[in-house]
Amino acid sequence: MSALNEEFLYQVFAIVEEIPQGFVATYGQIARLSGHDKNARLVGKALSLSEYFGKYPCHRVVNSQGRCAPGWLEQRTLLLQEGITFKDNGCVDLKKHQWKI
């Protein structure tokens, strides 16, 4: 897959919608669940467009180390409000909070 298409976007949004409160998923995890294993970056791009397609809990998606999206200061606050804990390095504690499917 070389570009975003509407089917991929809605696939990503449908998966993100399933992430339970108090848990996070990684971009790579969502890429795998969508059947596009090597497209974690496209997942990030899709999530950056989500506001044009509806309201999705995109704040529940972090990178493979548990880091929040750069430049999105509200993400950490939203996660903290859901009971997500962070390690001393500022990353989400994935061992505790990663969505297990």
Rank of each mutant, 00 (worst) to 15 (best):
Y27T: 07
R41N: 09
V43C: 00
A3H: 15
K95A: 10
T77M: 06
A69V: 15
G83R: 01
H97F: 10
S50A: 15
H97E: 01
E82K: 01
N63M: 09
I30T: 07
E74Y: 13
C58T: 15
A3D: 14
H97I: 08
I84K: 05
F23P: 02
F8H: 10
H36I: 10
G22T: 07
H36D: 14
Q98V: 11
Q75F: 06
M1C: 09
G44H: 13
I30C: 00
I30P: 01
T77F: 07
E74S: 13
G28F: 03
T26Y: 02
K87T: 13
E17H: 03
R60F: 05
K55R: 13
Y52Q: 04
E6C: 00
K38G: 11
S2V: 11
F23L: 10
N39D: 15
K95S: 12
L33W: 09
R76D: 02
V62Q: 05
A25R: 00
L33A: 08
F23A: 09
Q98Y: 07
A3M: 13
E82R: 02
L80N: 11
K55N: 14
N89V: 06
I15P: 04
A69R: 15
V43M: 04
F13Y: 15
S50N: 05
R41Q: 11
R76M: 04
G90A: 07
W99F: 10
I30Y: 06
L9H: 07
F13N: 06
R41V: 04
V92F: 09
G66W: 09
L47V: 00
D88K: 12
E17Y: 02
A14C: 03
G66R: 06
P20R: 03
I19H: 00
L79R: 04
T77E: 12
R32C: 08
A14F: 10
P70Q: 14
E6W: 08
V92A: 09
L42K: 13
E7A: 15
K38M: 06
C91R: 12
H36R: 09
S2N: 15
H97A: 03
K100F: 05
A40H: 08
C68L: 05
G35A: 12
L47E: 01
G90Q: 04
K95R: 13
S34A: 15
D93C: 06
G66Q: 08
L79D: 08
D93M: 06
D93L: 05
S48P: 01
E17L: 01
K55S: 14
